[in-house]
């Protein structure tokens, strides 16, 4: 099996600051991190490789700018994924986030998938900051490969995969012919935490860094991002538990919700 794993360096939304008053979103200041679900894809690639052999390559297209800080964080994330057991990586940087919608990203990433002659692409169900699941679908369409989303288990059977996937009302088991693109959920596995020495060694695995070149026009434009306004009282009720609960019930009565 020759696997391409798609990993996006996402904005760490937990640490992202926003100001509802001015609609300011501190994107520049926010740290980035590899998407958690993307790491499930990495883990799954490593497990498949352990079972049936082969090679697994990470592909990352940076979409949040390429300042020194962003690049460092991305390289760090790549190193960790390599430490989990991937063989090598392709890191494409230099794209301005506003220039790359999923149409452009998919074109760029699919080209790399072809280049490394992968026959399986693994991605996350959704990226941590955008959570659309559009990218893997578009990569599949670009390659002309079948696409199955929301996988909770993947078994290899010759030139087919048996994929269990989770939908709202059903759990489906499908047989997919390779080559294929699969997106995984957070429940498919528990990503291993690499050891220190593995991370050190991963620093020596090959990482091909390439500059993004603008060959395609985005189909979608983000006109603006507003900050949703939710006013919360944020009172932490103090006192001993009895007192606290009495105060709470009093407050809920005043709010007219009980």
């Amino acid at each position: 099996m020759n696997i391409a794993v798609l990993l996006k360096q996402s904005i760490d939304v937990q640490e992202l600051m926003v100001d509802p008053d001015s609609d300011k979103i501190y994107l520049e200041e926010a740290p980035t991190k590899p998407g958690e679900i993307d790491l499930n894809a990495v883990e799954e690639a490593v497990r498949i490789k352990e079972k049936v052999g082969g090679k697994a390559t990470l592909i990352m297209l940076s979409t949040w700018g390429s300042s020194g800080k962003r690049k460092r964080e991305a390289r760090e994330a790549i190193k960790r994924s390599l430490a989990m057991g991937l063989d090598d990586a392709i890191f494409i940087f230099g794209a301005d986030g506003r220039e790359v919608d999923t149409y452009v990203s998919a074109k760029v990433i699919a080209e790399k998938v072809r280049e490394i002659e992968a026959n399986l692409v693994l991605a996350g169900e959704g990226s941590e900051d955008n959570f659309t699941g559009l990218l893997p679908a578009r990569v599949a369409a670009e390659l002309g490969w079948p696409y199955v989303a929301y996988a909770t288990s993947i078994e290899v059977e010759g030139d087919h995969l048996i994929v269990t996937r989770s939908l709202e009302d059903y759990e489906e088991k499908v047989k997919v012919k390779l080559p294929a693109v699969i997106s995984v959920t957070q429940e498919i596995n528990k990503p291993r935490i690499p050891k220190l020495m593995e991370i050190v060694k991963a620093g020596k695995k090959p990482v091909k860094e390439e500059e993004f070149n603008k060959k395609h026009e985005s189909k979608l434009k983000i006109k603006s991002i507003k900050v949703p306004k939710v006013e919360r009282k944020k009172v932490v009720i103090e006192g001993d538990l009895d007192e606290v609960l009495d105060k709470l019930l009093q407050a809920l009565k005043e709010e007219g919700v009980i």
């Binding site: 904005i11 939304v13 937990q14 992202l16 926003v18 979103i25 941590e128 900051d129 955008n130 959570f131 189909k219 979608l220 434009k221 983000i222 006109k223 603006s224 991002i225 507003k226 900050v227 949703p228």
Partner: peptide, 12 residues
């Protein structure tokens, strides 16, 4: 978008 911290207005 952004894990719920933003509402994006998108145009195509």
């Amino acid at each position: 978008t952004l894990g719920g911290k933003g509402v994006a207005v998108e145009e195509a």
